[in-house]
Amino acid sequence: MRRQFKDTVMELSTSNDKLVMILGDVSVYLFKEFQDKYPDRFYNMGICENTLISVGAGLASQGFYPFVHTIAPFLTERSYEQIKLDMCYNQLGGNILTCGASFDYAWDGATHQCYSDLAILRMLPNVEVIQPGSLKELDVLLRSQYDNGKVTYYRLSDKPHTIDMPVEFGKAVVLKDCGGKITIMTAGPILVNVFEACKDLPINLVYFHTIQPIDKETIEHFRNTDILVIHDAFGLFEAICETAGLSVGYYGLPKDRFCDTYGTLEAIREDIGLDVTSIKEMLLNKMVQCL
């Protein structure tokens, strides 16, 4: 997905000379093409996430469109106050793009995991929160949002899904509406497993790439069903819960413990019950309870 990020930025740059890349010593080689073509607007600023955000805000104050990019936990959790104040409170919009969340760097352990980014950023004013699950989603949503003056967060993934669907900012996608009593709502690359788990079940499936603003209209459409949010992060569930009076539950991250294992993304998903088999088993049990 990072390659798509670079490709889209390269294309946008052909018609806009205000894009500035600010990297935290990540994806540097990938952006060599940009660096060679636009050396004045490429900065591998170093491993200093607080300053990356503040500098991005400063650039935005003078009419540039900053693209601040590094690893998710360090840019969002460490630099939350810089995002909150320098960008949001000052109303200096910019694009924040991260990699590694939630468990893309599974082998690196809990220090490199990030599953609260969407949840904490959606609480801020003047912010848009996007979790593109596919290359197409990233491409479409980058093009439509990067220059709108808001703070837009894109959580990139190295493990995108390939399910094609229409993409429009702020609009959820109803992937299956079979009149089922249960509606699954999910977001991002975990769609691969969720889609597979419920493909043969009489269950509705709704997909979100935009967490903030959340598509309340689509949520309303499924008000009379049992909504279950399946997500490998915090944020989507909380956003859906803001629609009052729903019957909504959450299945995903474990509570009150770190996922302190290593290995692969798939292994972590299996460990916390987000592999296809576990999701399907959970759904079959839920269907029995709903009878």
């Binding site: 955000i53 805000a57 400063g58 009419g63 106050e81 104040l85 000052n90």
Partner: peptide, 24 residues
């Protein structure tokens, strides 16, 4: 030019502004 208060923020923002003048 900048909303400040929380310490250690204005200087990073100033770096961004100075950089933008260099680019221009």
């Amino acid at each position: 030019e900048a909303s400040t208060g929380s310490l250690g923020h204005g200087i990073g923002l100033a770096v961004g502004v100075a950089l933008s003048f260099k680019i221009k």
